[in-house]
Design a protein around this nucleic acid. Sequence first.
DNA 1: GCTATCTTGTTGACACTGTCAACAGCGAGG
DNA 2: CCTCGCTGTTGACAGTGTCAACAAGATAGC
Lengths: 198, 198
Amino acid sequence: MRKKTTVPLKESCVDAAREVIAESGLEALSLREVARKLGVSHQAPYRHYPSRDHLLAAVMSKCFIDFRAHLEARQASDNPDQDLGELGRAYLSYARSHSLEYRLMFGTPWPAPAEHPDLVRNAVYAFDVLRGVLRRLGEHMPAAQIDQRALFIWSCMHGLSGIRAGDVMQHLAIDSAVAETASEQVLAMIGLALRPPE
Amino acid sequence: MRKKTTVPLKESCVDAAREVIAESGLEALSLREVARKLGVSHQAPYRHYPSRDHLLAAVMSKCFIDFRAHLEARQASDNPDQDLGELGRAYLSYARSHSLEYRLMFGTPWPAPAEHPDLVRNAVYAFDVLRGVLRRLGEHMPAAQIDQRALFIWSCMHGLSGIRAGDVMQHLAIDSAVAETASEQVLAMIGLALRPPE
DNA sequence: GCTATCTTGTTGACACTGTCAACAGCGAGG
DNA sequence: CCTCGCTGTTGACAGTGTCAACAAGATAGC
């Protein structure tokens, strides 16, 4: 039922869409379901989003904002090394507790990115958090090396998240102690890879 | 048009489905399109697959077989260290050249895994290739540590593949030299993380 | 050889989806 | 007052997955 409060339908659509995704999964998201949830006709959302993909892009954009906020709300630490660890933990915990939205952000083809500058901008903002921490970690490190390290760390985080979100891992008969401590183990491995030589 | 040769429709469906996926993407796959491609009625595939998801599972299963074959066909090397590198290169090249099928295997929720033991088995076989290489690399290493290393390396591979397959990376203004050499850089980082301490 | 049954494929229908087109109320500006 | 733009509605169309009823052809038992 449509809320009596004067919150614009445009924003309500995004919220309702996220509810549907959280309840019934990504593929179950349909414009008509959103409209039904808001108590409006099946065409009302079309006044604000020219297609299903445009609504999806708006949802993704908002997800990136939340994701970034979650990363920035990590446990504070003055030690840059430790700070990187906390950032990793924040990344992994978000991916775990919002696995459907995580897959939407990183595992779904973007609908016509050129048409959605907001989406791109918010995604870059999230990545910049990692860049920032690494910049503090390696004081006068060339930008290329920062990006290289960022890409490596991001790969580890994204890979572990993706593996855990999917159904593959549950069937691999992986040592249960390993599976449970995977986050810390991978973070430790990153620490090893980044430690200075010799 | 249905081939006159007596190849069973059941297998033709899987091949046709893979064609559709390769041509038009994952979400464009529909049972009716498959039937049309084979020149049969829209219900014919239902005689062999009780639902769209069952056909999808069959496709995924075959993809895992091909994936494993690609991994095993990697450049041979007696040096276990080098062999691990080659395995990584094979993984990354497969993910790059079959990005849609890769996403199907690892980025799509499995349809009722319990009902598809083949699918699970073939996925485990593929993972066992990595386990085997690591077992040769660390001769008398406990199984738990093997699994831990496998999970870490898999995370790196899967993460980099997923990032490159998605649309996110293209918009991050990453140093182009870094982007182009990402595969080797990440493999090198893995080597660093695995090297013995001190 | 004839019949019954199983396998494989066909046609037709239903509910659901995204999307287009035409229409309705309604507030702001001339 | 009257028009126009914004927002929302109703109705239609093609496409989808899936269920049900039917048809033809192979196969097994007698």
